[in-house]
Design a protein around this nucleic acid. Structure first.
Length: 565
RNA sequence: GUGCCUGUAGCUCAGUUGGAUAGAGCAACUGCCUUCUAAGCAGUAGGUCCUGGGUUCGAAUCCCCGCAGGCACGCCA
């Protein structure tokens, strides 16, 4: 895949400007300029042309001339022959505005026809191995709103990166070791023993998990094994309970995420890092590199040597490595053992403080911290009837992913969670998300797709099918609505690249809202089915291209593209 | 207290990495269906870009003093 239509035209404009500069210098009208970088941008205001450049303003200082004079000179020396430039002028403080011949956009039709469901893809990533690790909810219970947002974000980001030419792996990190599993075990044990010894006879741990799911697991376990584990020693009992409940929970996570249209390539177990000895090995590296010391019976990492405010414990006084130690081992595994070029972690805002520590630790064990990018997802506020929802009515606990999907369609959830940048707080309006109206952006976009399908079906029933791009009178496309649609269609490949580079799937939702808006305008202004057969044909083709592009973007977001609504 | 993030229309948010008269959607108001889906379109109105300095041809954007809100600072994960 070579450069996109937009990249081509920018190159053409850049080239023309540089030649004009050279010509002006040869004629002695402008002096030599050091390292000129030509910036071509799309003006906000359509009256300012299709593209514009600030070159004259950048040059002005070195030339000791007014920007507008430099611009005048450049335009006079500009050779537009063989380009798509139809007109250019000086405007504002010294901008050079380019007005292009409308035909520059026509090739997008053939491009979309040729690439179809792959239109928008690029090889920018050159097949580099990227991992997106996301959700990674504690397997001790169900998923909450943060997981729901992180899930939608991570999944769409992974897909976006794939479209941009990266080799992407989706991974879920199962925290099945360490402290919180210990808590999980103690809670299960207490509930189990309470069944046989009575609630008063067995104290429930202070910091235990209170949830009904724990009691449920203990009950189910008792159904199968009866009182077999009442008399055994506590370690054996807890191990059996955890093995049972954990697998149930992981299976439930898989199922719930699958329903949410998220399928992970790898479910990576924290416990495997202990079994393989990688945690111990990682701690050895810290020691060998001279970044550790012992204090109060614990082994510390001298994080302050890496710009941190505090040192970190690697091994507790009780001999158990910290989550932090295991996490460093995990990232060594990702980057060294499995050779990912880039590891992207999606964490909740409450893990913010962990980012710098993690990067410092990677440096300490000899890994380039640049290999790790962390995306922080801000927490979600649910809004219902204009008020903040804090608790789930059903469980009395935090609202879970399943609670949300009871209220809202999967399409709406995935769309809404990708509407905003991840680092901004998100208000999720439950009433809006279920509303079937123009206020709801998901429906707005899907409606555009359905409308197009409806036109295609109508004309098809009259014997008019979508024509081949080669047999079209493309020059009949000239209405502003038509040209703007073409321009937006042409942007997709560039938009995918930009979104992938900045890790912002929200650019895709915005893109398809924009595209849908342009289509709706076109629909009102231009009739597809009309007297002129050639015009019908070319507009029908345009509709089909919009349909294809909407479908492609929605596919990237794993949102359905209905044919009728 | 220390560090990080955020502050843009009544509300929710964009703002092309320093560019032109700061933009959308919702809410408000005015119009548009005998013709391809009105779940739509066209238009009007709405601003101290948190305050105050600085950098320069030019600042919502970059730098400093404040103000307000959020988060993080455990031998938790």
């Amino acid at each position: 895949m070579s450069e996109t239509i937009i990249e081509k035209v920018k190159l053409q404009l850049t080239d023309a400007l540089l030649k004009a500069l050279k010509t002006a210098q040869e004629k002695g009208e402008l002096t030599e300029a050091a390292d000129v970088s030509v910036n071509i941008e799309q003006p906000r205001d359509k009256n300012h042309g299709d593209y514009s450049s600030n070159l004259a303003m950048v040059l002005a200082r070195g030339q000791k001339k007014a920007p507008r004079m430099v611009a005048d000179t450049l335009i006079r020396c500009l050779d537009t022959s063989g380009t798509c430039i139809s007109r250019c002028e000086v405007a504002g403080a010294g901008f050079i505005n380019f007005y292009l011949d409308k035909s520059w956009l026509y090739p997008v039709i053939a491009a979309i026809q040729a690439q179809g469901g792959a239109y928008g893809k690029s090889d920018m990533g050159k097949g580099k191995k990227y991992m997106v690790e996301f959700v990674s909810a504690n397997p001790t219970g169900p998923m909450h709103m943060g997981n729901a947002r992180g899930g939608a974000l991570g999944d769409c980001l992974a897909e976006l990166l794939r479209w941009a030419g990266y080799d992407v792996t989706r991974e879920f990190y199962v925290n099945d070791a360490g402290n919180q599993i210990e808590k999980f075990a103690n809670s299960l044990e207490a509930r189990y023993l309470q069944i046989y010894l009575g609630e008063d006879a067995v104290a429930f741990p202070e910091d235990g998990y209170q949830g009904a799911d724990i009691t449920q697991h203990a009950g189910d376990f008792a159904q199968i094994y009866k009182d077999k584990y009442v008399g055994t020693d506590t370690a054996e009992r807890k191990e059996a309970l955890v093995r049972y409940a954990l697998e149930k929970n992981v299976a439930a996570l898989k199922k719930d995420l699958g329903t949410y249209r998220i399928n992970f390539d790898v479910w990576f177990r924290e416990s495997s890092l202990y079994e393989s000895g990688e945690v111990a090995q990682t701690i050895e590296i810290f020691k060998n590199n001279g970044h550790t010391y012992e204090k109060d019976g614990a082994l510390w990492f001298r994080a302050t040597d890496f710009g941190e405010e505090k040192d970190e414990v690697l091994i507790r006084a009780n001999g158990i490595p910290t989550y932090f130690a295991a996490d460093v081992a995990y990232h060594r595994n990702k980057i060294l053992a499995r050779g990912f070029d880039k590891v992207i972690d999606i964490w909740g805002a409450d893990h913010y403080g962990h980012v710098a520590r993690m990067k410092g630790a990677l440096k300490a064990v000899g890994i380039d911290p640049e290999k790790l990018d962390v995306i922080i997802v801000q927490l979600v506020r649910l809004i219902s009837a204009g008020e903040v929802v804090r608790m789930s009515k059903r469980t009395g606990k935090a609202v879970t992913l399943n609670d949300l999907l009871d209220e809202v369609s999967i399409d709406a959830a995935r769309f809404f969670f990708n509407l905003r940048q991840s680092d901004s707080h998100l208000d999720f309006d439950l009433d809006l998300a279920v509303e079937q109206s123009s206020e709801n952006p998901v429906y707005y976009v899907q409606y555009a797709h359905a409308r197009i399908c409806s036109i295609l079906a109508l004309l098809e029933s009259e014997g008019v099918s979508v024509p081949d791009a080669a047999h079209l009178r493309l020059d009949l496309l000239g209405e502003p609505q038509e040209l703007e649609l073409l321009a937006k269609l042409a942007e997709l490949p560039d938009e995918v690249k930009a979104a992938a580079l900045s890790y912002e799937p929200c650019r895709l939702t915005r893109y398809c809202i924009d595209l849908a808006a342009l289509f709706h305008s076109f629909y009102t202004a231009c009739r597809v089915r009309c007297e002129d057969k050639d015009l019908t044909a070319v507009r029908l083709k345009l509709c089909d291209c919009v349909r294809m592009v909407l479908a492609n973007v929605l596919a990237m977001l794993s949102i359905t593209a209905p044919e009728r609504m």
